[in-house]
């Protein structure tokens, strides 16, 4: 009890916030630095080295053009030709691929998935955020002097 009162008291609040923020930042950086898989962008920056490597492609890759035996995808402003016979995609669709990278900038698809309702999903997801945000600020207000959220008097439930 004594430990709880001292360690979690308002006195150490600044230190705790600092420690949490640093830990969150460290996790984000760790994820960035130690991500163990090869990405399409890595292949495009070192095509000789990654020639013949199996990779997964996601991260907002969209179809730009469609051909008889494949299509072109764009990811982070770079376009890559994908050979994928018998796959039906349309321009503008989001795709996820499991593929083999070939230098200088092409892929041979092993598996293709078209995320058909992804745009709808993104737009629909905005409404719950607004709704829950409005509900939260209806219940609480932020006191800029104390830096605490306070329950609004009008909606105090005891």
């Amino acid at each position: 009890m004594l430990l709880k009162n001292s360690v979690f008291s308002a006195r150490y609040r600044g230190i705790r916030v600092f420690v949490y923020l640093c830990s969150l930042a460290a996790l984000i950086l760790y994820g960035r630095v130690h991500f163990p898989y090869v990405t399409l962008q890595m292949c495009l920056s070192r095509p000789e080295f990654y020639d013949g490597t199996k990779i997964s492609v996601g991260n907002e890759a969209t179809v730009r053009d469609v051909y008889k035996d494949g299509f072109i995808i764009e990811q982070l402003g770079k376009q890559v030709r994908v050979s994928a016979p018998d796959v039906h995609v349309a321009s503008g669709e989001f795709v996820y691929l499991h593929a083999v990278f070939f230098k200088p900038d092409s892929l041979h698809a092993l598996k293709v998935r078209v995320a058909k309702k992804r745009r709808a999903k993104i737009w629909l997801s905005v409404f719950p955020v607004l709704l829950i945000g409005a509900y939260f600020f209806h219940r609480f207000r932020f006191n800029v002097k104390t830096f605490y959220f306070e329950e609004r008097r009008s909606c105090q439930i005891l």
Binding site: Y20, L21, F149
Partner: peptide, 11 residues
């Protein structure tokens, strides 16, 4: 960790 951080903003 984010939850612990967020909870710091409630007295």
């Amino acid at each position: 960790l984010f939850t612990l951080l967020f909870a710091e903003f409630f007295q």
